[in-house]
Amino acid sequence: MATIQAGESYGFFTDTSVCIGCKACEVACKEWNQLQGDSPSFLADSFDNTGTLDAQNWRHVKFIEHVPDQSATTGNGTAWLMMSDVCKHCKQASCMEVCPTGAIIRTEFNTVFIQQDVCNGCRNCIAACPYGVIGMNSQTGTAHKCTLCYDRLQGGLEPACAKACPTQSIQFGPLAELQKAADVRLAALHSQGVKQAQLYGRDDKVYGGLNAFFLLMDKPETYGLPNADNAGLPSRNDAGGYLAALVTGVLAVVAGLVAFRRRVTG
């Protein structure tokens, strides 16, 4: 890959059809970012014992079993879905929208980054992120998520997770190149008759486009991702919420004035 340059948009194309659920990405991320991980627990949920993205897990491989109970299947990434989930580095980032401190910024690589020294742990971003990406570290009192290996990019290195992924399910690069690669892959799958393959976040239908976008083998909801109809920014509720409050306020003031009105008799 060409050198990593400030001013260019970078991201991930995660092709779930070739993910083998090895979790190398999870571990590589923890190793590079010195995350301890959560205390071990058996979740009895397929091969997933990580559970969710949080402050200790910036990559999380989801396992969704749709294996038909029969001898032969076509496998092909459709029967046991695996998806390495991560911060989407949304073009229109819900987290960034609500953050009151300005801790969440867009970097020179067009990625979404939480400045640890600025964040004060209010957790508004957690309430906002539609992907359940962000978690709190109670030790630091700050919000954490994938940095898209900001430090590595600055040093000209590709992110640790992409580097570790053995099957190139996670591809890192300039967004435009990734989008091209994704289109080619989708076309190939469609021509092989894998019609359910679809790109998610490649276009601007969800959050103006995702810097970390995916090739999925089923509907987005199956993977726990909001579909295009269901992807809204938090600010969509500003107007409605304030309007209802305003109307209530006016009615309440009138009601108060009426209740407290000057008495007729002494």
Partner: peptide, 8 residues
């Protein structure tokens, strides 16, 4: 099997 074309 998950990424194979056929599983037996």
């Amino acid at each position: 099997s998950a990424v194979a074309d056929m599983y037996l």
